[in-house]
C-alpha cells in the first residue's frame, strides 16, 4: 500500500524535526502534494489517522494537504504547459520531447506544534 508507506516516512521526518526543535506534541502537519505525484490525498489522510494514532507525538494531529499544480516543459518549442490537461505531448508544437518541471512533489511544508 503506497500511501501507508508514505505516511510512515512523513512520521519519521516529523519525529526528526520535533527532536531538532524540542517539540513534544504536534497539532498539524502541512504537506505539499504534486498533482501527478501518484499519491491519493484521501487514502493518505485515512492512513494518517490510523498510523498517527499509534505515535504519541502526532496522535490526533491533522494532516493538511496542499496540492501543487503539475507543469511540463517542452524541449521542442521551449514553452511550459499544464501537465494534467495535455499529458506528454506539447499542445503548442506536438513535440513528445517534454519533461515534468513540477508536480511530483511529496514534501512537508510546515509543522504546527503546541
Amino acid at each position: 500500500m503506497h500511501e501507508l508507506g508514505i505516511v510512515f516516512h512523513i512520521i519519521r521526518s516529523v519525529e526528526q524535526v520535533a527532536a531538532d526543535n524540542g517539540l513534544e506534541k504536534i497539532s498539524a502537519v502541512v504537506l505539499e502534494l504534486g498533482e501527478v505525484s501518484g499519491v491519493v490525498p484521501d487514502y493518505l489522510t485515512d492512513c494518517w489517522k490510523w498510523a498517527a494514532a499509534k505515535e504519541e507525538l502526532v496522535s490526533g494531529s491533522e494532516l493538511k494537504i496542499e496540492t501543487l499544480p503539475a507543469v511540463t516543459h517542452c524541449g521542442g518549442c521551449g514553452r511550459d504547459y499544464p501537465t494534467v490537461a495535455h499529458g506528454r505531448i506539447c499542445p503548442h508544437c506536438q513535440s513528445g520531447n517534454t519533461w515534468l518541471l513540477t508536480g511530483n512533489e511529496v514534501s512537508i511544508k510546515e509543522i504546527a506544534a503546541y
Binding site: 508514505i6 516516512h9 512523513i10 521526518s13 524535526v17 526543535n21 517539540l23 497539532s27 504537506l31 512533489e105 511529496v106 514534501s107 512537508i108 511544508k109 510546515e110 509543522i111 504546527a112 506544534a113 503546541y114
Partner: peptide, 10 residues
C-alpha cells in the same frame, strides 16, 4: 501554537 517551517521532501 508554534509553526515550524520544514520545506523538506518526504
Amino acid at each position: 501554537v508554534r509553526i515550524i517551517e520544514v520545506k523538506q521532501s518526504v
